[in-house]
Nucleic acid binder design. Structure first.
Lengths: 176, 176
DNA sequence: TAAACTGAGTTTAGACCTAAACTCAGGGGG
DNA sequence: CCCCCTGAGTTTAGGTCTAAACTCAGTTTA
């Protein structure tokens, strides 16, 4: 007879919908709502930290994806859209901002209307060297209250969840 | 000797940072990145479904929070901000849109500059009755490939994670 | 009782995203 | 050789959010 874990806000939301709309299936809330909240906490924390370091989350996502891609460290806008999980239009805007900031460059073709490849400048690489380690250390602290065993259990369950979601997998991700 | 789970994109990202920035702690990625991706998949799916039903995610979040709050089904903007985990400014804008759509009303005070309480109209309640059940059924299907045992394990680990994050708890949530 | 304070709500500027329309470059038919 | 098609990239309109400045109502204080 293991002790029940203390109830939290997601449990309260399940109860509230059971009360307001009897008969609807509320079981997914325990997973979906908590994932939503955790993502919000991580996202807010990351935004604050990066703001202090002078970058925004979207730009760092772009630069990180290029850096992680490995040699030759160049990606087309379409590849970036797949890896970053945003629309091509969003990539156009991210690249435009990053170019203005001197963090990436584009090679174009023909009249120059279309970008062909995007790659980091020295300044972009320097920014990554300066920021990513701090970010990973901060996030390590955020999840540090979970024992390594619990953390690995959670990671494995999330991997299983994502595999079934048909969402982001190795396809379209880093490492062409 | 349990079989290793198949590698996914998050594993690849861990490897890539180990290669690019040797020495940085990459263990948090297995949890943080997968939670981020899962939230993105759930969020995109919810946005698409709700767009078909003629609502947007932010408005449904507002209406749901009011409905779940129970009697007297009224909340101040500040309470709503806490429960929805967005800034008060965002609540002002959400309420303004919902008022224009006829889904909620406001009671004001004095010159009418400040809202005091926000509550659902009949149209707002009808929209919830029409939409929430469909949404929960759809999300139940999304996580349906996990066995109930795995789902509960995942929910428990996420509850533990959130408790340690000091993030959303019972405080400021539903239930007055 | 009037000035200052405090806290809740609102406004605004700026960032970011999506969806849909638009624009080229390159590759077939005719 | 030219027209059209297709696909990748870009533009634009519209919506959402945050952070910081601003505005009141009610309260404290002298």
């Amino acid at each position: 007879m293991a002790a029940e874990p203390p109830r939290d806000g997601a449990d309260a939301i399940q109860d509230a919908w059971r009360r307001e709309l009897p008969g609807v299936p509320v079981e997914s809330i325990g997973v979906v709502t908590r994932i939503w909240w955790a993502a919000k906490v991580f996202g807010d924390e990351r935004r604050r930290l990066l703001a202090n370091l002078g970058v925004d989350v979207a730009t760092l996502d772009l630069l990180s994806t290029l850096r992680r891609s490995g040699p030759p460290y160049r990606m087309s806008p379409g590849e970036l859209a797949g890896a970053c999980m945003v629309t091509r239009g969003a990539i156009t805007q991210r690249v435009e901002r990053a170019v203005r900031a001197g963090l990436v460059e584009r090679t174009t073709v023909g009249s120059g209307y279309h970008a062909r490849a995007v790659f980091l400048t020295d300044a972009g690489n320097a920014l990554l060297d300066r920021v990513v380690a701090d970010l990973l250390v901060a996030e390590d602290r955020l999840v540090g209250h979970l024992s390594p065993e619990r953390r690995d259990q959670l990671a494995d369950l999330l991997r299983e969840l994502l595999a079934g979601l048909g969402g982001p997998s190795l396809t379209g991700q880093v490492g062409d």
